[in-house]
Design a protein around this nucleic acid. Sequence first.
DNA 1: GCCGGAAAAGACAGGTCTGTCTATTTTGTT
DNA 2: AACAAAATAGACAGACCTGTCTTTTCCGGC
Lengths: 195, 195
Amino acid sequence: MSSRPAVISASPKRDHLLATAWRLFYRDGYRVVGIDTLLAEADVAKMTLYKHFSSKEDLIVAVIRKRSEEVQDGLAGAVQAAGRSPERRLLAVFDWLKGLFGEADFRGCAFIRALSEFPETDHPVHQVAWAHKQAVRKQLVGLAAEAGAKDPPALAEALRLLIDGALVSAHATRSAKPAGIARQAAASLLKAARR
Amino acid sequence: MSSRPAVISASPKRDHLLATAWRLFYRDGYRVVGIDTLLAEADVAKMTLYKHFSSKEDLIVAVIRKRSEEVQDGLAGAVQAAGRSPERRLLAVFDWLKGLFGEADFRGCAFIRALSEFPETDHPVHQVAWAHKQAVRKQLVGLAAEAGAKDPPALAEALRLLIDGALVSAHATRSAKPAGIARQAAASLLKAARR
DNA sequence: GCCGGAAAAGACAGGTCTGTCTATTTTGTT
DNA sequence: AACAAAATAGACAGACCTGTCTTTTCCGGC
């Protein structure tokens, strides 16, 4: 018996589809990009797609889940690289943001855009996008606690507001500046939250 | 000669179309709602729509512009009703937000959703939605200056990040709580910005 | 009662969309 | 070389999309 996993997952075609779908969905939008466009771009047959994903919606969910993991890993890496100072570790989140905003193909937050394109809160795409925001919130609570905040969940929540706002601003202005504004505000909030 | 304005605007049919379009676009999304659905809901003929608007895109822009005026007026009214204390006037923005979040049909920020559905920054819909955010920013700069902030534009920018973040959070959680979090953070930032 | 403009009704063109199906070809393993 | 699994090409259904066009109907002012 081969060691093939029970769930159909690790497949080169599947990965290639996910990567291409991510690129197009993020660039143009989840709804506006059609299956045929995606297949032409990926150079993959339609039946192959529907063998790996039950529907376009299912594909979108998978794309968002994968991106969520990448973002969480990137964030955790940036925090770890920031050293041991709890304050610096917390503010490293905003430096990481600045880097993200500076990328040439930055088009805003894929998760906020998913929440917007699928505004019904019980829609699977909406829910998986929101699950990402909650995962980030968890990371922030840890950092806030480390940094000695009196009420870590409260500080984390405020920081998330700053981050989401910065993501929106950076998208529309095509600028990394909002990261700096958010960073300064975060430092101020942290100071106040320690007292 | 009657006092009809030069620009074809104040028409009952046009207003009715704008109102219906707003309701459907805000509930379901700008792209997902088709012209035919809108016309059936408004009980208006297709040619009537295309007599008042040159295209669907033109209609979306008009809807967003109208909503922007309403929001700015609502905000200005809430600030004025808050009295003369500059701090209270500034924080009234967040109380107004709380009321907005509590509305039964609240579905997030129509402008952020427009920015998300039309992610190209030079798209007319993207630009008109961003113009709204800048108009709100102007109002905030005034309030920040009144409240004695050292750098009013900087404080206003930070407040806008909090507001946009709260709008996203309130949408996904169907809760008015983010308004309180943002209000508290805003009060803290204001205190720090006065020193 | 009549006339003119606004609106309605509905067909139409030319696309696009998702998802299914079949038949053929490629690929990897033994 | 043979076989099985995976992927391909391409047609297809049935629905939807925006925008245009023509014909008919309504309605208010004179």
